[in-house]
């Protein structure tokens, strides 16, 4: 079943064109990853799906009564706002105590229910955000660089948990990620975005795209070059340079 269908979506952000003519869809049970350089409109795309940004053209069609599990890229909780982990997990919909205990156990944070959100470490905070997104049994998880601040082990177990959730609940996952080795192994489909959809397909197909190789050439060796892939349009040089400058960080 199609959960999210994006039709020729164009977005302007303070007069700058952020996205133009983006179309794709996500069906239930799929794991789709969006990759792309900084400023390529990845976050804007997710925000358009949840309705935080209005399209200037095109549209976003959603399954009726769709439930999102959204993990934002950054969440700053103001110092003046006291809130415990268990209270945070009950927003915006109330859930019972046993659901909270179960969610915290699954997130590997069984003892933190009464701790203030502001006292959590970066990794703990991130896992609480995911637990909150999952607690309401979403149709689709939207993850915006959700493994930021996690070490490799933390990030690996994070993706393992997502895979497990997908198997158990059949929810779809649409995520933005920079960790392409994970993307390769964990996604059903990859969308390469740079203001428009550069290429889309199975990880193998996208991985063979020239700009994609420019980004990951060093650590993927020659293996990905085996895949054949034809672009439907050509790219200018600065596109590639953007990728390269990003890998240097």
């Amino acid at each position: 079943m199609t959960l999210v269908q994006i039709d020729n979506l164009s977005l302007k952000y303070s007069k700058r064109m952020v996205l133009s003519n983006v179309s794709f869809e996500v069906s239930s049970g799929e794991i789709v990853t969006i990759v792309g350089p900084n400023g390529s409109g990845k976050t804007s795309l997710l925000r358009a799906i949840i309705g935080a940004l209005k399209p200037s053209r095109g549209r976003v069609l959603l399954k009726s009564d769709i439930r999102f599990g959204y993990v934002p890229q950054k969440l700053h909780i103001d110092e003046t706002l006291p809130i415990t982990v268990s209270r945070f997990l009950r927003l915006p919909r109330n859930v019972n105590g046993s659901a909270i205990d179960a969610a915290l156990l699954q997130a590997g944070l069984p003892d933190l229910a009464k701790v203030q959100m502001s006292h959590l470490s970066g990794g703990q905070f991130q896992r609480v955000l995911l637990a909150r997104a999952l607690i309401d049994k979403p149709d689709i998880l939207l993850l915006d660089e959700a493994t930021q601040g996690l070490d490799q082990r933390g990030s690996a177990s994070f993706y393992k948990q997502i895979e497990k959730v997908r198997q158990e609940t059949g929810c779809a996952v649409l995520m933005i990620s920079h960790e392409l080795h994970v993307v390769m192994s964990a996604s059903d489909r990859v969308i390469c975005l740079n203001g428009h959809v550069c290429c889309e397909g199975t990880p193998a197909v996208v991985a063979s795209a020239p700009e994609y190789r420019a980004l990951f050439g060093a650590d993927t060796g020659g293996a990905l070059a085996l895949y054949q892939h034809h672009h439907d349009h050509s790219h200018d040089d600065d596109h590639e340079r953007q990728y390269q400058s990003e890998t240097k960080h």
């Binding site: 949840i50 999102f68 809130i83």
Partner: peptide, 17 residues
């Protein structure tokens, strides 16, 4: 609840309808 969620983060509010 709606006020509190919006105060925490506007995108979390949007995602929660």
């Amino acid at each position: 609840t709606a006020l509190l969620t919006s105060t925490l983060n506007e995108d979390l509010a949007h995602a929660g309808g």
